[in-house]
């Protein structure tokens, strides 16, 4: 098969720009997911009335529906009842809505893994509930749950491929455009795959390294 290198070079800037958008979306999506997940898991830990039920409903809704339909609902559905937002805002909210529940589940299982006696030990030196969370529970939960958090992070970066559906010029969307315009199918898909490899592989290595680092810092093994 002849590869049209000329074409690849000429569309390189396009893909570069799209890749940055993918990275940006993945980054903000992951960051917001972590915050949402943390807040949700703390609400679940304290068993705060009503909020606890709301978190439960949110987690089930978010985990049992596809991102694509979440995005369509946010982007096309809500605008029609008066809530408008830009594509990028919508995409990041969608990713955070999806990722928040995954992160929440990860944090929750991490917190559950902290032994009851560790909590009692913290209480016995007079720590308040918030101090207990901050100094005893979260550092241990974080180390335990790091592999799940890393997996969720990769998952969210991959899910950014879907937000092209609401007209964001990330990698998928650009590829679709390029195929539609120039019919250079092979080259376009090749660039697409390479772009994802360049984003996901280093991220994956970075997270694996971070996992070991955190585990060592917390427990030394």
């Amino acid at each position: 098969m002849d590869i049209n290198w000329q074409f690849i070079i000429s569309t390189l800037p396009l893909y570069q720009k799209a890749a940055w958008i993918t990275i940006k979306l993945g980054f903000w999506g992951t960051l917001l997911s972590l915050i949402i997940g943390l807040v949700c898991s703390i609400i679940l830990y304290f068993r705060i009335k009503i909020l606890k039920e709301l978190v439960g409903i949110y987690v089930e809704l978010s985990r049992n529906t596809p991102l694509l339909i979440q995005l369509f609902f946010l982007y096309f559905g809500l605008t029609k009842i008066g809530i408008t937002m830009s594509e990028t805002t919508c995409a990041i909210i969608g990713l955070a809505f999806l990722g928040g529940s995954y992160m929440s589940e990860a944090f929750r299982s991490g917190i559950e893994a902290v032994s009851k006696t560790q909590i009692e030990s913290g209480l016995s030196i007079g720590l308040s509930q918030m101090q207990l969370i901050r100094y005893v529970i979260l550092p241990q939960a974080f180390a335990v749950t790091m592999p799940s958090l890393a997996a969720n992070c990769i998952f969210l970066f991959k899910e950014t491929s879907i937000v092209g559906a609401i007209a964001i010029a990330e990698l998928m969307h650009v590829t679709q455009d390029v195929i539609g315009m120039y019919y250079q199918t092979f080259e376009s898909l090749f660039m697409l795959v390479v772009a994802y490899l360049i984003i996901i592989l280093p991220l994956s290595f970075l997270l694996t390294w971070l996992e070991r680092k955190v585990r060592y810092a917390e427990f030394g093994n």
Partner: peptide, 29 residues
């Protein structure tokens, strides 16, 4: 919180905080 500061307790399984050094464990309270 106030009372427990005056009542020290030591547990069967030590329950030191594994993610802190000895001195951090002692200083926390």
């Amino acid at each position: 919180q106030k009372t427990r500061q005056k009542i020290g307790m030591v547990f069967q399984n030590y329950e030191l905080f594994p993610h802190m050094t000895v001195i951090e464990n002692i200083l926390l309270g």
